[in-house]
Write a protein that binds this DNA or RNA. Structure first.
Lengths: 237, 237
DNA sequence: TTGACACAAATTGTTAACAATGCAGAACTT
DNA sequence: AAGTTCTGCATTGTTAACAATTTGTGTCAA
């Protein structure tokens, strides 16, 4: 029996449908509790969530359709391992979509939206002061989803959530030693730019921010933990 | 026995996987061969594609995750019937994403990309001259996907394809009597704006175009063929 | 005729068994 | 000892039967 690292997913006690399973894995990836290339065996997920194989397989299919999971025929499901090209695609797509979102928000945002964003940044600061690393990572990505939520557009929310999640995988793979998450005060700057009402300024700010994250990566070098090594490490600890 | 309109899907003779099934239904919806609220019974799809129920159910799940199909528990799968709110979301998302795409294309587009776009518009004109309505509809949507393809970004291509398909459903539901597809020469104008190299002009052109399509709809009125009536008509012809 | 109720048929959802594939370790050869 | 083949085990893929729900129909009563 293998004793590879178990996915860090708390067991549920309710009766979850496949969307709950998808969300749980989604969250785990976003919080970098599930590393790229982690094997997601059907049996393990069945036991973790207390459901039949069908539910698990449906959830895995949905996850694979969003690029979060790689489904390899007859070999199982693995947390996705984006290539450098895919990573670039994700960042370009984020630039395209998120700049559009903040430009529109700069033209008019509801007051409660601003409230939510500011309190979100506050939470980030708290997490940073208490050095709660998982929480920092989670909130850091969630901020961008909150921006999309201010737009109140179901399509954009879904797309941004997908892209933020994939960004987590990319950072895990290509991140350099330095702080590999969203820098400290840039989220606050984005809010300020939105509130100022200048679309161009808002666009520039978030573009700078996203590029900042991308520049913290090393997309030209090989990925961390190439397949063979990872296999060795998980096979025999 | 019901004698409702059969889905217009030619039978296949190869051994398709679920992605092929998804693509076929995708195409049928984009070409408006499958109307909203059309029931997609598992048995019918199994026979049409010559596959087992599992493949069909996986395909339907994928389609539902993209808003093309509504999966109602214990009642089956139906071609999606977007609400007016969902329709607005789709158009806002298209504005956000497609303006971003053409702005970037205006900053630099490969020559072969221009070639493809121009020959695409030519095909549209041919189809229009020969009054090939299904082909007009198909090409009209496909143009926007081709724009995304010029960007060579897998994420954006996928999202645009989804949105264009959903737009087909929306037009089918909310379209007024008039020409409910992309107007004649606006696609050519978009190409010209891109080639001119002025991002702002390109953005304005495609924004105008998308809004033009949206204005051809009647999103405030009730949808065509409200549920009850449709039920009556299909139940007893 | 209309409505309610009951039953039958059809369709979807779930489960479990089976088949097929890949993987790992043992045995064998060189 | 290194490499190769073989065999058994574990995991995934598929099928088919079964259960549950909805839907349509027919009967009956008001």
């Amino acid at each position: 029996m293998m004793n590879e690292a178990e996915p860090k997913l708390d067991t549920l006690h309710t009766d979850p449908n496949e969307q709950m399973i998808v969300d749980r894995i989604y969250s785990a990836v976003m919080e970098q509790k599930l590393a790229p290339r982690t094997k997601l065996s059907e049996l393990a997920l069945c036991e973790t969530f207390g459901v039949g194989r069908m539910r698990v397989r449906r959830a895995l299919l949905l996850l694979s359709s969003q690029g979060i999971v790689d489904l390899r025929s007859n070999r199982g499901a693995y947390v996705a391992c984006p290539s450098a090209d895919e990573a670039r695609d994700v960042f370009v797509a984020r630039l395209t979509i998120e700049t559009g979102i903040v430009r529109e928000l700069a033209r008019g945002i509801r007051d409660d939206g601003i409230q939510i964003l500011r309190s979100h940044v506050e939470k980030e600061e708290v997490a940073r002061r208490t050095d709660d690393r998982p929480e920092i990572i989670r909130l850091s990505g969630a901020f961008h989803v909150e921006l999309a939520k201010c737009h109140e557009n179901s399509v954009l929310i879904r797309v941004v959530r997908e892209l933020v999640t994939r960004t987590s995988l990319i950072v895990a793979l290509f991140g350099t030693n330095q702080a590999s998450t969203c820098p400290d005060d840039e989220h606050a700057s984005i809010i300020d730019a939105i509130v100022s009402g200048d679309p161009q300024s808002a666009e520039d700010t978030i573009r700078h921010h996203i590029l900042h994250v991308q520049n913290g990566l090393d997309l030209n070098q090989s990925q961390k933990a190439e397949p063979d090594l990872a296999k060795i490490l998980t096979g025999r600890m």
